[in-house]
């Protein structure tokens, strides 16, 4: 075949479109179970430390708190895995620890309630359109 008429960005775009359409028609590009939309897995360090990765459920928390509580007042950046959270900070009352302190919510000793993911699950926002489009987790979807 000779040179394609369609130049590269456009061709990529067509591939993308096809991916989108397959999604719409219910064809699973990557076979994946149906985790709840907005569930965030944070696994920068957990696997290495031998803990199950924590899962943060947006649906559960947004019933109780508006986005601004976490993303403005508590300073969570809009990026899965992008906040350098660790246990020291949590115990110090930062991030999850601003609430999981035995006052607003149950406290840190309930390790397994947070650390509930399948070992080896990478950092990701489950249900993300971007993740589905490129067929793999998209931790880079947030701002830099």
């Amino acid at each position: 075949m000779g040179k394609s008429h369609i130049h590269k960005p456009k061709r990529n775009f067509i591939l993308w479109l096809m991916a989108l359409l397959m999604l719409a028609s219910g064809v699973e590009i990557v076979p994946q179970a149906q985790a709840e939309y907005g569930d965030v897995v944070i696994n920068n360090q957990s696997d290495k430390a031998g803990m199950r990765p924590p899962i943060f459920p947006h649906w559960f928390h947004r019933i109780r708190f508006r986005c601004k509580v976490c993303h403005a007042d508590l300073g969570f950046k809009f990026q899965a895995g992008g906040n350098q959270i660790n246990m020291l900070k949590i115990i110090d009352g930062e991030f999850c620890g601003a609430c999981h302190n035995g006052e607003i919510a149950w406290s840190v000793e309930n390790c397994d309630v947070c650390h509930s993911g399948k070992p080896g699950t990478p950092t990701q926002v489950h249900g993300s359109t971007v993740q589905k489009l490129i067929g793999k987790p998209a931790p880079a979807a947030g701002q830099k």
Binding site: R52, S116, K118
Partner: peptide, 28 residues
């Protein structure tokens, strides 16, 4: 309409606290 946590592909069905979590379908 909502997958149970044990079968959602993210949660470890063997996790010791899986039954302490609320099922999405119950609330949603």
């Amino acid at each position: 309409k909502w997958s149970p946590l044990e079968k959602d592909g993210l949660h470890d069905p063997q996790g010791p606290a899986i039954h302490e979590l609320q099922q999405p379908g119950e609330a949603l």
